[in-house]
């Protein structure tokens, strides 16, 4: 990731059926948003083990976005 602390590194966990689809729709509509989120697709937010969130912070995430 960049070392620029003014841009927080965000890790996203997006549900395939809703939030991931919504993020695609945002693209189709050309909504512009900050480029500092990195998305991991899961089939459902039910898949997200709390350990994943801890892991995310350990690996340098400044924030985690769970979208479902």
């Amino acid at each position: 990731m960049t070392n620029d602390k003014s841009e927080p590194a965000i890790l996203g966990f997006f549900c395939h059926w809703c939030c991931y689809a919504a993020a695609d729709a945002a693209g189709v509509a050309r909504f512009q948003y900050p480029p500092n989120v990195r998305v991991i697709r899961v089939m459902c937010t039910g898949r997200i083990d709390p350990i994943f969130l801890m892991d995310g912070f350990v690996n340098g995430a400044d924030g985690i976005f769970v979208g479902g």
Binding site: A23, D24, G27, R30, F31, Q32, P35, V39
Partner: peptide, 18 residues
Amino acid sequence: RDQCSWVHMHEKDAATRK
């Protein structure tokens, strides 16, 4: 595309990094 180039059209370097 949908979650990168289309949504960061004016930030080419940041989009490339992403």
